[in-house]
């Protein structure tokens, strides 16, 4: 086939370019440009509120990798991810399997209830949960004490040992509805005749699930894990409103660390946008690296 010259192709597609323009401008302004700029800012000694900015090369990075709080927050973010994602995946799958039953008449109602926290503003959840887990007559402690599970109230959010598990629990509660919906979508792709045929062949119980249904939903599982893993690294609103990283930084994940060094001036220190950007870039690259690794793993698994 004869191919038109490039200039003619571009001219013919002039409407196409016009149509992609508005969205491209927005994405450019609020996604692409900020990515580029944060690299530049990370090389500056800059408070963010004055025009004075000094170029200091990689000094911010050097300072970050030598900061104990930086690494604590870094590791804590991954603890958060490894602690929540498997729970969500497994629990979400079990619930989805039950709710996928047509026979269960109340399934739509249960689905709605479990999904409800997902549509609730995350900052509000954080604030309400500080009440729920309050050691002073908070409902959680009241329940535990009235059922004699504990004798003294537990300071869930005030104790460095319990704060992270509590926040992780709330995170799972808040977002489990999404995981369940993902699994429901996956389960609905299992054709009824596959299921019927397996039954005729005598596949029952766990054998049916392991040999017939799991292989069908596996490709979905990989996408779900990827989406969930990246999601679990973005937990700023919940932790900021529940604990603001406290007590004694024991729930400070990476995004809280960035926010604190960039904007919080309570402690009397100057805000340091340049330094916060360096921490952010380091973090962004780490997340990207994990995403790419997972993406590669996904491709390999799909080919098999």
């Amino acid at each position: 086939m004869h191919k038109k010259p490039l200039s003619k192709q571009i001219y013919d597609a002039r409407w196409c370019y016009l149509f992609v323009l508005p969205c491209s401008i927005l994405t450019g302004m609020f996604v692409i440009y900020p990515i580029g700029m944060s690299w530049y800012f990370s090389l500056l000694d800059w408070s963010g509120f004055t025009k004075e900015a000094k170029f200091i090369g990689l000094q911010n990075y050097y300072e970050a990798v030598n900061d104990e709080f930086f690494w604590d927050a870094f590791i804590r973010s991954f603890i958060f991810m490894f602690g929540t994602v498997p729970v969500k995946i497994v629990l979400g799958f079990i619930i989805a399997v039950f709710l996928n039953n047509q026979v269960l008449k109340l399934a739509p109602f249960f689905r709605t209830v479990i999904f409800m926290p997902v549509v609730t503003a995350i900052a509000i959840i954080g604030i309400v949960m500080t009440f729920v887990f309050s050691p002073f007559n908070g409902p959680a402690n009241k329940f535990l004490m009235s059922t004699n599970l504990t004798s003294a109230p537990i300071d869930f959010l005030g104790n460095p040992d319990t704060v992270l598990p509590t926040v992780m629990g709330v995170y799972v509660w808040k977002w489990l509805g999404i995981t369940m919906m993902y699994w429901l979508a996956a389960l609905q792709t299992v054709p009824q005749d596959v299921y019927d045929a397996a039954k005729i062949d005598g596949a029952e119980g766990y054998r049916l699930w392991i040999h017939i249904i799991l292989p069908i939903v596996l490709p979905f599982a990989i996408v779900i894990i990827l989406v969930e893993a990246v999601g679990a690294l973005n937990v700023f609103p919940l932790i900021e409103t529940m604990t603001a990283g406290g007590p004694f930084f024991s729930s400070e994940v990476m995004e809280i660390y960035i926010f604190r060094t960039a904007f919080v001036t309570d402690s009397g220190t100057m805000p340091r946008l340049g330094y916060a950007c360096a921490a952010g870039v380091f973090w962004g690259v780490a997340v990207l690296f994990i995403t790419v690794l997972q993406g590669l793993w996904m491709r390999r698994t799909r080919r098999i």
Partner: peptide, 28 residues
Amino acid sequence: FPGKKILIGILISTIFIPQGYTIIPVFD
């Protein structure tokens, strides 16, 4: 149209950018 693949590529690559990463330049 010419450039479509590049456009999609750029777009896809931004999917997993954390919000915390872009917030400071957006503010600026």
